[in-house]
């Protein structure tokens, strides 16, 4: 990516005063893991709901020497990931990468990379609705009181209803967690498959909700526990087959519809992970030479 840095704008778009304001919110969020810190979210040049919260967090923590990776649905090449990566390449002139291990900051929508994160990395989540209790209680004044008084019984009522109705907890993504034994937190709409990766992660996890004007955080090596019942323990989504391209087991798969006669294939949602494995010689059932695939 060699686009020239955008003239007329500050490094990483936001002015320094705004960045300071956001950094203060981030520091507070780190000090109170899982607590939603209100911040004066700015209007960004991309729409609300398209990652403005994550972009503001990234813009406030990024430095010229950082290496940025942006993924959406696990992929570096989806439209919104491309757009956000291009935004930082233009406004901050930073190096970008698709390799999880090479990145110092990873901004993500809906996935946590398969490759384990390491000390010093920052994972920035884009969050649409930060309040895990929102669909049980629409009033902000009431949900803030519930957090303050640690009244989380209602969340279990929801899980109870799932089991009574379906025999399972029917929440498959945005699965609520308790952070450091205190705050109830929405992990953003990542599949619950990724929840265990949040627990005791060496990386700093920052969450930005632009439209809802909230920032929250999970500091490195913090307990993150998915809610459940003793007799209906939390379980991750499982797939019957390995990835059709790289043969990986125990990874999150996307379903690709091949034809209108029920033909399906399952491939890694994390494109970097899949590509790396294929380069190492791993092969799945349907892998073919990838040269010349349509764009």
């Amino acid at each position: 990516m060699n686009a020239p840095t955008l003239t007329g704008y500050n490094f990483a778009y936001l002015d320094e005063q705004t960045k300071r304001m956001i950094r203060r919110a981030i520091l507070k969020a780190i000090a109170i893991p899982g607590y939603q810190v209100p911040f004066a979210s700015r209007e960004m040049p991309m729409p609300y709901g398209w990652g403005t919260g994550g972009v503001q967090v990234t813009a406030s923590v990024i430095g010229p020497q950082d290496v940025l990776k942006v993924i959406d649905q696990g992929s570096d090449d989806t439209t919104n990931a491309v757009s956000i990566r291009a935004f930082f390449a233009r406004t901050a002139g930073v190096a970008t990468t698709t390799a999880t291990a090479d990145a110092t900051i990873i901004q993500t929508r809906h996935r946590i990379p398969e490759a384990p994160l390491t000390d010093g990395q920052i994972l920035v989540y884009q969050v649409p609705i930060p309040e895990p209790l929102r669909f049980l209680e629409p009033r902000e004044t009431e949900t803030r009181t519930m957090h303050a008084l640690e009244e989380y019984g209602l969340m279990h009522v929801k899980l109870y209803e799932d089991i009574a109705r379906h025999g399972h907890i029917a929440t498959t993504y945005a699965y609520p967690v308790r952070v450091a034994g205190r705050y109830l937190m929405d992990p953003s709409p990542t599949p619950k498959f990724d929840n265990p990766k949040m627990h005791m992660s060496p990386a700093l996890q920052l969450f930005g909700a632009g439209r809802e004007k909230r920032i929250y955080a999970v500091p490195p090596y913090t307990r993150v526990v998915s809610l459940d019942f003793e007799d209906h323990p939390f379980e991750v989504n499982r797939f019957d087959k390995p990835c059709a391209l790289c043969g990986a087991h125990g990874v999150y798969l996307d379903e690709v519809v091949l034809d209108d006669r029920g033909g399906r294939m399952f491939v890694c949602s994390d494109t970097d992970h899949c590509g790396t494995r294929q380069e190492q010689g791993h092969r799945g059932d349907l892998s073919t030479p990838r040269e010349g695939s349509a764009a």
């Binding site: 696990g74 809906h110 498959t172 989504n237 379903e255």
Partner: peptide, 14 residues
């Protein structure tokens, strides 16, 4: 209209 196929996949599985 942004891709939601990761979440949709989780719902499909369930």
């Amino acid at each position: 209209k942004l891709p939601h196929y990761v979440d949709f996949q989780a719902e499909l599985g369930l």
